[in-house]
Design a protein around this nucleic acid. Structure first.
Length: 357
DNA sequence: GACACGTGGCT
DNA sequence: TAGCCAAGTGT
């Protein structure tokens, strides 16, 4: 039992937050929480977790779920691929593992959406297996404590920190140690404004002694952000059942896959909305020549990790939809049903502004 | 190994 | 403001 772990766990017992997934050893719920919390703040993910547990209390229920419903519940969380992988894994657990998550790191690792971190988290938190989690918090705490300058976004860095963490965790209760280290990083050893003065490890912290706490962890710089210009055309019309809009399910290998949006033309530069509108109308071969422009929105800037989306929404009304020849299926969605379709935050914001949802 | 993949909070 | 960052994973 190392001294570091003993002090850390003692600190954790006294200072830990009361979070719902901490009061269970059910691997299903732990898995759910871990997937939701990947690259996601607790405050953002908490309600999603509670809703998922309520709607899908067991892995069997989730395995039987409808994809669109899961996506709708995931809406707003981002990294939507997680929802797909989650459903895949739920089915695998039911089908190949008799409904039980395996108490085995490598088997967990083989499941979709479960990588190094999540496999270690489930193994340790649900099954008490001594495997250290190495997440952003752990990188930060250990890099500062030992003043390690190896960039954390390299395989050498991942290896080095994992080795240190494995040594530190040994002979400690795995679940407590892992959660304690992450909790300490989240509450004290924060990226900005860390509470060094109150830190229980201040005497041993090399980065603190060198007065360079903030420069850890070291990270290789990342690439430039690509700018994209989206021109959405909301085509509204009427039929016997009232007003409807043309929508599409995104299926290309691109952002927001499997979410719904509207007919779209993209440019690499800022473009006149009318130019975009004409191009799109030609593309989908909208025969009806009579349309009226209801509204052209201001630019919506939407920031993603590697892209900046600039979107303008052009809302038009068409008397009669005659002959939509899109290369792929366009849906006629009743105005009142739009809210049932999972959409990106960008689309959601626009629809809210237009009072359409 | 490099890069794509979302969103919101903070500085 | 623009950039950074958060309980990472898949390709």
């Amino acid at each position: 039992m190392g001294r570091f772990g003993r002090i850390l766990i003692k600190w954790y017992d006294k200072n830990k937050r009361n979070l719902p997934w901490r009061s269970t050893r059910d691997p299903y719920k732990i898995w759910l929480s871990e997937v939701i919390l990947q690259q996601t703040r607790i405050e953002q993910g908490l309600n999603y977790y509670l809703r998922f547990v309520k709607r899908f209390p067991t892995v069997e229920k989730l395995a039987a779920a409808d994809s669109d419903e899961v996506y709708k519940m995931w809406q707003g969380l981002g990294y939507y691929n997680r929802a797909d992988n989650m459903m895949d894994t739920a089915k695998t657990i039911v089908k190949d593992f008799n409904g039980r998550f395996p108490a085995d790191y490598n088997k967990l690792l083989s499941l979709k959406g479960i990588g190094n971190y999540t496999a270690a988290a489930i193994a340790s938190l649900a099954f008490n297996i001594s495997k250290p989690v190495v997440d952003g918090n752990v990188f930060r705490v250990l890099s500062r404590l030992f003043a390690i300058k190896t960039p954390i976004n390299t395989s050498a860095g991942k290896k080095e920190f994992e080795l240190i963490a494995s040594k530190l965790i040994s002979n400690h209760p795995p679940a407590e140690f892992n959660q304690a280290l992450m909790e300490f990083g989240a509450l004290y050893c924060k990226p900005k404004n860390p509470d060094c003065e109150k830190c229980i490890f201040i005497k041993g912290c090399i980065a603190w002694q060198k007065k360079e706490v903030i420069s850890y962890p070291v990270k290789l710089p990342k690439r430039n952000i690509k700018k994209r210009f989206f021109y959405y055309v909301l085509i509204e019309s009427n039929n016997g059942d009232g007003s409807f809009f043309l929508m599409k399910k995104r299926d290309k290998n691109d952002i927001w896959k499997k979410l719904y949006d509207f007919p779209l033309v993209e440019f690499s530069n800022k473009t006149e909305p009318h130019t975009a509108l004409n191009k799109l109308l030609a593309e989908i071969n909208l025969k009806s020549s009579k349309y009226r422009i209801v509204d052209i929105s201001d630019n919506y800037q939407h920031q993603l990790t590697h892209q900046q989306i600039n979107a303008v929404f052009i809302r038009i009304f068409v008397n009669k939809i005659e002959n939509i020849e899109a290369e792929n299926s366009i849906l006629l969605v009743n105005k009142n049903d739009i809210t049932n379709y999972p959409v990106s935050r960008l689309i959601e914001r626009y629809l809210q502004d237009q009072k359409l949802i």
